[in-house]
């Protein structure tokens, strides 16, 4: 047990999020999948930081905090866009959003 265990969990979370994004067709669930990917990144950042014996500073942990702030802002923008499109289309299913074609 050590850094590797955390990295494996983080990679699995990232993979689940990526799969969810590609497999799900509901805009809100896709947004949740992106959040899962960002959380996987946070886990890896904090783990790298905790097991970093070379440099004593907490760069990774601070980066993780900043990523959380960015993720919150991203969720706000995303939900605003989802609400706008549900008002005009009455559905969150992205497969229905196919007006833009040549």
């Amino acid at each position: 047990m050590g850094l590797q265990a955390y990295l494996i969990v983080s990679a699995m979370l990232f993979g689940i999020g990526m799969f969810g994004f590609l497999a799900r067709r509901n805009a809100i669930l896709m947004l949740i999948s992106i959040e899962l990917m960002l959380n996987a990144v946070n886990l890896s950042l904090v783990a790298f930081n905790a097991y970093d014996y070379y440099s004593p500073n907490d760069t990774g942990a601070i980066f993780a905090l900043l990523v959380m702030a960015v993720a919150a802002a991203e969720a706000t923008v995303g939900l605003a866009l989802v609400i706008a499109i549900i008002r005009t289309r009455q559905t969150p299913e992205v497969d229905e959003y196919s007006d833009l074609k040549e």
Binding site: G78, T88, R89, Y97
Partner: peptide, 24 residues
């Protein structure tokens, strides 16, 4: 406008997906 909604949402979803990959 339904076209603008669609463009914005697609841009957002794929853009954030790319951001997550870059961040990893």
């Amino acid at each position: 406008d339904r076209y603008s909604n669609e463009g914005g949402l697609k841009y957002f979803l794929l853009g954030s997906f790319a951001s997550a990959i870059l961040l990893f």
